[in-house]
């Protein structure tokens, strides 16, 4: 690039600043979401109703479900049915409009796992042996982070209600190329499979997940899944 262009970029590189309060404001919102997630985890561990545990943050409550997503991996079948998930659905999720269908795919030049809005249609994604062996469920465009969170909330509710079959069906029906919550989805799948007695699949999925994410925060919960069958082996 020309020296003039470089000088321009140098000048603007750090020119934009958030308003003076933004850093504190956003941090407070993140902390609120984290605290709400931790409270939700504690409440769930105690098998107590979670009403009020998921408090909205100042800016929105997306983070609550990211963190509360950890709840998904708690062994759930023995828990009493939870309250309807909608009562714990963050306001921002409730307010979010239905995702518009993609008009047409965007050509993806990337080698793999493109970002959500650059991805081609899911049907064009590489097929895995697992996906080929399953009946093709409703195939959707790659879900946004918020849609993923909404799905995980539903899966969590199904698992907590002891309905692992519904949880698994929801996971199968809503496929995604978004990898940010891949670990959470995979962990939920392991629990669902184990709850359904599909032990071999559950163990295989768990092994794959833990190999891919050896430091997964869900490791201890995953290691408790399918454990009865392992002990009797």
């Amino acid at each position: 690039m020309s020296p003039e262009s470089r000088a321009f970029l140098e000048r603007v590189r750090d020119a934009e600043e958030p308003d003076p309060d933004a850093e504190r404001r956003v941090l407070a919102a993140v902390r609120a979401a984290v605290a709400a997630g931790a409270a939700a985890t504690a409440a769930d561990t105690a098998r107590a109703p979670m009403t009020g545990a998921v408090a909205p943050s100042k800016l929105g409550v997306l983070g609550v479900w990211l963190l509360a997503g950890g709840l998904i991996v708690l062994p759930a079948p023995a828990l009493p049915p939870s309250e309807p998930s909608a009562t714990r659905t963050p306001a921002r999720l409730l307010a979010a409009p239905e995702p518009a269908p993609r008009a047409e795919p965007v050509a993806a030049e990337r080698s793999s796992a493109p970002a959500a809005d650059e991805a081609g249609p899911l049907a064009a994604s590489p097929e895995t042996p697992e996906s080929l062996s399953k009946p093709r469920a409703r195939v959707r465009a790659p879900a946004s982070l918020r849609e993923e969170l909404e799905l995980l909330a539903k899966v969590q509710a199904a698992l907590r209600g002891g309905d692992a079959a519904t949880a698994l069906r929801q996971l199968d029906e809503h496929r995604t190329l978004d990898e940010q919550l891949q670990g959470e989805r995979a962990a939920a799948r392991v629990l669902a499979l184990c709850s359904l007695g599909r032990t071999a699949e559950g163990r295989r999925s768990r092994a794959e997940l833990l190999q891919r994410e050896p430091t997964s925060p869900h490791r201890s919960a995953l290691e408790r899944a399918c454990v009865e069958d392992e002990l009797s082996d």
Partner: peptide, 18 residues
């Protein structure tokens, strides 16, 4: 922007252990 920044750092917080 505030919401987006919050989203980023909640994901960071969530995924930092891994």
């Amino acid at each position: 922007l505030d919401d987006a920044a919050q989203d980023v750092f909640v994901v960071v917080h969530r995924k930092l252990p891994s």
